[in-house]
């Protein structure tokens, strides 16, 4: 933090805004445990239509409501990263481990004053062709385990300590767009084939389809598993204003569909501190916080509260480290919102 340079000028009691030189997409919040002595780190990935993209690391001090930039912690990234994520439980005292997905899975060690590329994890057998990774998820219970989703229809489970593939599954019939861990060996994924499937590494012969989009093959873009109550997960259909809430015990029939966005939903995140709350953001510039009622009423579910950003909100993170704060990204801005 020595090299902190400027503070964000946009701030109020309840929100802090950071402006980046470029459009933002990927975003990650560091986990609390690793950062106890530090302010929370936020990694921000650019979306630039160029091979050269950037990842910037900033830090947030909730006490002073300030965001500090760290130019020495910025680094180049090939292609816009599709996802950034800090290792959930850091094994290191002095640094954070950051992963990014794009053309390949990359691991970076974020130190106090520098970022070191650790490895590029590539399972492709072809040097000419590349099957980009659309997302990944870090297993919280087994921090050495990380799963990626690819448009080549597979999910690959990596042992990042050894840098080897633990397994690769042809998870779907079409491109896989998102992946999410539930337990140490159980993950779910969504795909262009319109299905949500649950996999168990102990039984790789089978998966369980717990949802299929109503129109065959309407792609599902995002998936979020409720870590507070693993019975529930949420998914987002492409070009849909709906957030579909699933109860994995009753496959095929969503328990709720949240349809108050006025344009497509881009990201969803369950509250880290409550099993009944979820936040969603969309192209309607809104961030909506929902409370799932025990029983859905006939008229659908209204969100509890809302926030309007200046433009389409592309990203959302609700980190366990700072459960009072929701981070959103829209345009070239990252904003922290107090809830």
């Amino acid at each position: 933090m020595e090299n902190s340079s400027q503070e964000s000028h946009l701030r109020s009691e309840n929100s802090v805004t950071y402006e980046s030189p470029y459009q933002l997409y990927a975003m990650a919040l560091s986990s609390s445990s690793a950062s106890a002595s530090r302010h929370q780190r936020i990694a921000l990935g650019s979306f630039i239509e160029d091979f050269n993209n950037r990842v910037d690391i900033v830090s947030f001090d909730p006490e002073t409501l300030s965001i500090k930039t760290h130019p020495s912690l910025s680094f180049d990234h090939p292609y816009p990263p599709t996802k950034l994520m800090f290792q959930p439980t850091s094994l290191r005292k002095s640094s954070d481990l950051l992963a990014s997905s794009g053309d390949f899975l990359r691991l970076w060690e974020v130190r106090d004053s520098s970022v070191e590329p650790l490895t590029v994890l590539n399972n492709s057998k072809s040097s000419e062709f590349c099957a980009p990774l659309t997302s990944f998820d870090w297993n919280e219970i087994e921090p050495k385990r990380l799963g990626t989703s690819s448009i080549d229809t597979t999910c690959t489970i990596w042992d990042i300590e050894r840098g080897v593939v633990e397994t690769q599954l042809i998870a779907h019939d079409k491109e896989v767009y998102d992946i999410c861990w539930g337990e140490a060996r159980v993950f779910a994924s969504v795909s262009a084939d319109g299905s949500v499937r649950i996999f168990d590494l102990r039984d790789k012969e089978h998966s369980t389809i717990i949802y299929e989009s109503p129109q065959p093959d309407t792609p599902l873009l995002r998936l979020a598993w409720n870590k507070q109550d693993l019975r529930y997960m949420a998914t987002v259909l492409m070009d849909s204003n709906k957030v579909v809430i699933l109860d994995i015990r009753s496959p095929t029939m969503p328990v709720a569909e949240l349809e108050r966005h006025k344009a497509g939903v881009n990201a969803i995140s369950w509250a880290p501190q409550s099993s009944r709350h979820i936040c969603s953001v969309g192209d309607d510039t809104q961030a909506l916080i929902w409370e799932l009622p025990p029983v859905a009423g006939p008229n659908g579910i209204d969100p509890m509260s809302m926030y309007s950003a200046g433009s389409e909100i592309n990203q959302l993170q609700w980190s366990a480290a700072q459960p009072d704060w929701i981070a959103i990204a829209f345009s070239n801005k990252m904003q922290l919102l107090k809830v």
Binding site: E13, N14, S15, Q23, Y25, F47, P80, T82, T134, S135, E175, Y177, D178, A192, P219, L221, R222, M238, D239, R260, K262, A263, G264, N266, A267, D283, D284, T285, Q286, A287, L288, I289, D302, P303, M304, S305, M306, Y307, S308, E312, N314, Q315, I326, L337, K338, V339
Partner: peptide, 29 residues
């Protein structure tokens, strides 16, 4: 705090037209 109670009558946003593909679609589909 940052959020306010949800209400239906939200500005003119109901007519918001999003011309560009969302980033999430551009990085998945």
């Amino acid at each position: 705090m940052a959020f306010r109670p949800y209400s239906l009558q939200n500005e003119a946003q109901s007519l918001r037209v999003v011309v560009r593909k969302s980033l999430v679609a551009r990085l998945t589909k």
